[in-house]
């Protein structure tokens, strides 16, 4: 908005135009966020009759709580595994889709629809196939002598939610990698080909570095996705279990606030999450600024 633009002279109209959006942000964003900040410094007694100001005690309690540290670790493992898995699969598919000539649109159409599947439903689809009671794959795994029960084994539960979460994210990453690959000037690839760089070498030394901005952007987006949008998967598939093995930070905020009714702690956790989102958003926007160079 640097250069002066031609504008309309009205003085009242712009406020009216902005009113709906600003009203919604005040009522549903700023007020609740300020309440979370305020409540994070309060503690209610056991009967909810009296609240007292406790400063940072809630935060100290949260960070001293081993189950919170466990949730942090679970979230880190879950986010990184989901981002890595879905990005690798998507990159293989995108480079393959760029290689072929016939059937590009056909394959794209077939690869993009998981985007439309709700995370919770994606989780349930995988649970249908892999739950020990009726899942065909669980049946095959056990026939093969493998002790498979994601409802009892924490690591297996984690694998299941990571696979379900990545599956849903493949289409998103695929479309962005395809866009990134198409943005690479053909002349560069041709120059590399003339210089004798073939196949894998050309990919790792020319294509992959030029995809770095896309990959970095996707890494941030996928981490945010794994942090927040996968609440549905965790809630629908494992309920944070077994034995808190898949309890992520967002699931814990929900659980402590709505199930255990521990408001002070839930508010403090909300504030911590806000700090994390602010950090991630800042990284994302710094990056979006720089991306201009790559077109």
């Amino acid at each position: 908005m640097a250069q002066p633009r031609v504008v309309f002279p009205n003085k009242v109209l712009p406020y009216l135009l902005l009113a709906p959006q600003i009203a919604l942000t005040l009522v549903f964003f700023f007020w609740p966020a300020s309440q979370a900040l305020y409540q994070s410094a309060l503690r209610e007694d056991a009967f909810g009759l009296k609240t007292s100001f406790v400063g940072l005690a809630n935060f100290r309690a949260v960070f001293d709580d081993p189950s919170y540290l466990n949730a942090m670790q679970v979230t880190a493992v879950f986010s990184l595994a989901t981002a890595a898995l879905s990005m690798c699969v998507a990159l293989v598919l995108a480079t393959s889709a760029e290689r072929i000539v016939r059937g590009k649109t056909f394959f794209r159409t077939l690869l993009i629809w998981p985007y439309a599947v709700a995370p919770a439903v994606a989780g349930m689809l995988w649970l249908f196939m892999f739950n020990p009671a009726m899942g065909s794959f669980a049946y095959m795994l056990r026939r093969a002598g493998y002790d498979w029960d994601p409802l009892l084994n924490g690591d297996q539960a984690m694998v299941l939610v990571v696979v379900a979460a990545s599956w849903k994210q493949i289409s998103y990453n695929f479309l962005f990698f395809v866009a990134g690959l198409q943005a690479i000037p053909k002349s560069l690839i041709e120059a590399a080909a003339i210089d004798g760089a073939r196949g894998a070498k050309r990919f790792w030394t020319v294509v992959f570095p030029l995809l770095a901005p896309t990959s970095f952007f996707l890494l941030v987006v996928n981490t945010v996705y794994a942090f927040f949008d996968t609440f549905g998967i965790i809630h629908a598939v494992t309920g944070g279990g077994p034995a808190k093995a898949t309890e992520t930070l967002v699931y814990k905020v929900y659980n402590d606030g709505f199930v255990n009714l521990n408001f002070g702690s839930s508010a403090a956790q909300s504030v911590i999450l806000m700090v994390i989102v602010i950090g991630l958003t800042a990284i994302q926007f710094r990056y979006v600024d720089r991306r201009v160079h790559y077109g």
């Binding site: 009522v27 549903f28 609740p32 979370a36 967002v250 839930s266 999450l273």
Partner: peptide
């Protein structure tokens, strides 16, 4: 508002 997804302000928004 980008930085305040519903997941980080669950309880107070619910109360509203």
């Amino acid at each position: 508002t980008l930085m305040l997804p519903v997941e980080v302000r669950i309880l107070p928004t619910y109360k509203v």
